[in-house]
Simulated assay, not measured.
Amino acid sequence: MSSPRRLEEGGPWAPALALLVALTAACHQGGRGPAPVFSGETIDAPGLDVEGHRGDRGNHPPGNTLPAYAAGLAVGVDTIEADMQISADGQVFMGHDDDLHDTGCAWTGEGRAPSTRISSLASADIARFDCHAELEGVQAPPSLVAFLDAFFAEAGPEVALNLELKRPSRADADLYLEALIAYDAGCSGCFGERLILQSFEWSALRHARERYGDRLEFRAAILDKRGRYEEIAKARAYAEIWSPRHPLVDAERVEQVHALDMQIIPWTVNDEARMRALIELGVDGIITDYPDLLLRLVGRLR
């Protein structure tokens, strides 16, 4: 995949971009510890899919915010990886954790928050949680629509989206898919071939493929913590990508999964030596909290 075009001044993510310098300084001054340091030795990896975990979580925590997504695009990721939650009023919001307290977002409304869980909060209340207290203004978890509006306005035409279905049931999958289909219809098919849907709940992906495969184009990625070949092979009926916890990847499994005509995109890899080893094993992409480190390694940092 090619790198995204430069983010335009005054675009939908301009306010988020204006915060990036302040956010970077605040993160490192806040005692998070140093970001990984690149050794300086690059590796040839043509076609490697560099996926920014929650945008650029490592440099712009907690991720899944407009500043974090903007940062991922700014360094040149091939894919923005993000997570989808569902509010109490049935709207899709971006976020890794249902509990915003776990994410690190703070209530800014009057009195006590009615809940800290996205699943128990109305959309208007979610907008009162601030996920970047070190910055001016409220940086709330964005809705799916707000995120996609900004993404399609600013990302290059070959930058992809890898969206995780965080809620596991078929009913949840229906809500996610209907929201994505409605957006795709409203933007005249802007997803094109750019969409990946991933989940630890493989049955939700199977359901999505069977029920919505003729209404929305997407590749399915099975998130995997076990690495059992027989299970991976069965999932090939509805999934095109094996996305395992990175210690599960070895030469034998790479050969087996590629023989199934599946791509391999492990997570979450933040160590340069392990990135290098996985590239040498032949993985097709890597999900990382530090996309700038991976892009330096492959010689493609913007």
Rank of each mutant, 00 (worst) to 15 (best):
P4Q: 13
W13K: 03
L17S: 10
T24G: 15
A25E: 14
A26R: 04
C27M: 11
R32N: 08
G40M: 07
T42C: 09
T42G: 04
D44T: 13
A45L: 07
A45T: 08
D49V: 02
E51G: 00
E51S: 12
H53G: 04
G55V: 12
P67D: 11
G72V: 09
V77Y: 05
T79M: 14
A88C: 01
D89S: 02
F93H: 11
G95E: 03
D98I: 00
D102R: 14
G109T: 12
R112D: 13
A122R: 13
S123F: 10
E134N: 09
G137F: 09
V138I: 14
L144H: 04
V145R: 04
N162H: 10
N162R: 10
L163F: 09
K166V: 12
K166M: 14
L175R: 08
E178K: 15
I181P: 01
S188N: 13
G189A: 04
L195N: 08
S199A: 14
W202K: 07
S203P: 00
E217H: 13
F218E: 11
R219C: 05
R219D: 15
Y229G: 00
E230A: 01
R236C: 01
R236Y: 00
A237L: 08
Y238L: 14
A239S: 09
W242I: 03
P247F: 07
V249M: 00
R253D: 00
V254G: 00
V254Y: 05
E255I: 01
L260P: 13
D261E: 15
I265T: 10
P266W: 10
A273E: 12
L278W: 15
L281G: 04
D284A: 03
P291H: 02
P291W: 03
G299W: 09
